[in-house]
Design a protein around this nucleic acid. Sequence first.
DNA 1: TTGAAAGCGGTACCAG
DNA 2: CTGGTACCGCTTTCAA
Lengths: 340, 340
Amino acid sequence: MNVVDVARQAGVSTATVSRVLNNAGAVKTATRARVMKVVEELKFRPNLHARSLARGRSRSIGVIVSNIENPFFFEIYKAVEKGARAEGYEIILANTGYSSEQLMASVWLMIGQRVAGLAAITSEMHPELIEELAGYQMPVVFYDVGAQRRNITNIRVNYRRGMEKLMGYLIRLGHRRLGIVGHHAMLGPIRDRVAAALESMSRYGEVVVKTAADADGLEGGRRATRVLLSANPGLTAIACVNDFMAVGAIREIRDRGLKVPRDISVTGFDNLELGKFCYPALTSVHIPRDRIGEMICDVLLQKDRTRAEHKIVIDPELVVRDSTGPAPNDLRRPTRNERL
Amino acid sequence: MNVVDVARQAGVSTATVSRVLNNAGAVKTATRARVMKVVEELKFRPNLHARSLARGRSRSIGVIVSNIENPFFFEIYKAVEKGARAEGYEIILANTGYSSEQLMASVWLMIGQRVAGLAAITSEMHPELIEELAGYQMPVVFYDVGAQRRNITNIRVNYRRGMEKLMGYLIRLGHRRLGIVGHHAMLGPIRDRVAAALESMSRYGEVVVKTAADADGLEGGRRATRVLLSANPGLTAIACVNDFMAVGAIREIRDRGLKVPRDISVTGFDNLELGKFCYPALTSVHIPRDRIGEMICDVLLQKDRTRAEHKIVIDPELVVRDSTGPAPNDLRRPTRNERL
DNA sequence: TTGAAAGCGGTACCAG
DNA sequence: CTGGTACCGCTTTCAA
């Protein structure tokens, strides 16, 4: 079943069938109707591979994320999809699971598909990636990682600023014993968040301990918190590298018979919708997923080729909700040299 | 940049390049090395469209879901992906957003890609879909909806049984005034769940009211609950059609100053991981996403062509956690004819 | 307005 | 073990 069959059945050439199917070129109404009728009857569905091959260029863009299960990545993806759809582009999605080998494999897949543009929204990186991508003329956007090149745009979030806001807030609440919950992808942006938190807090000479879960997610957040609290029962606050893990952290704390924020304050990062629905609602740092998605589309679809910035930095805002409160009295204002 | 370029550069034929790239046929080690070297140098990435076209058959299977944001769908997808990967298949994912037009469009996309198999895990249906799909020899699996055909297998969950278990449990707890939270996709499986809940409860002559949110999700669950409680302040229990919405329902109840389960019991459906992490942990009905994903793979990859059942029914189990408890005393055991 | 035919970039069969 | 080449199914000039 192909254009030839349709053409023969309709008594026209394949060129005409193609014109009808693509609403391209001028075709007499009667002819068009005849072709459409045959298409219906034969249930003809064009082979998209053949079409892409013949066309040479594609109307699809690739999106690669680290963990689509984490609503943070999902929402960026959604925003990109929305913008792309509006321009008539399809999205090809790939999930790396934080593996840099998988990241590389996904990039090859995208290139093999000859996507019109590529966005990598990942926490991990691969040493050969930039070199690989810099060779093409196709527009590329990296979120969080990567380096600038002629065809490569970077979108970054000032995690340092975000973490400083968060830490400053915790300090004002009297917290001096902080735990940090990260996950296995401790390179790139996740490391930045942890490092910034460490530095901000350490500046006051406070006690800071950190743990890395074996996975991003609810269960990962819970397990890391378990480890953290078992080893450091005196913590008054726990900062998680993202909201997704923070929800797990809160659950672990409650299961230990402690109250949030009365006994321990918890913070997330990203400001997910989920944070408003967990209990208590999560204090976090807002990262504008919608705006990021729109930016990615703008760059990839070249809507504004003239104003193409190659580096975009986002300054995130603190969002205070119910999961943070004053440090417990008996632990407030320890001396500078006090240790757990 | 194509096989011809590589072949010329390496001083071999395109056939040999192809053999090297696919590890197929016998190629002298020296020749192989020479070709690989050129491939590296030129950074040659085969055009996957051309490859698919030439091969005729594809090594990918299509998965269509209603709402990938809902962890229920996501987890089935994950399970299918895992099984497919193990057999060397790629997955093409499509999200319909509960739109039957989009469902149809997604199916066309899959067929256009000439997928080796197709799974539709949706709550919506399209009248022409079965007819469309029945024409191909490609294996198809429908979860929840659809009809059996030569090439079409159905996996279904006995929602009636699941809901009966849930309602029986609520009844034993003394609940007699139930609210049901559904969402806009009130056809197919979602309607089944609602209908089953209604019937189970009504059998005891109880008061049952229902609402349909405009969307599946946390916010949808919250809004529907708001509507429900505003109109029916006397409800002692709320049954949601899925866990995702139930989390939103719990939040709304708490925001109204009520306690779960002291004032109102809440139940979900699906038994998501998320249900263990929200507060209070959610009572639900378990649907085995992993097993469903495996079944789908078994059918699509024809691992067991002989034992191919065309209809599989799953009997779901009740999972009791902390979001349900005895009905408030002042409202227990109303007379059969009592109304709100 | 329509048709003939040359690609698009691989794969795989058939010879040698 | 290697090369020549006929496809795969659709798009897109170029002529008519």
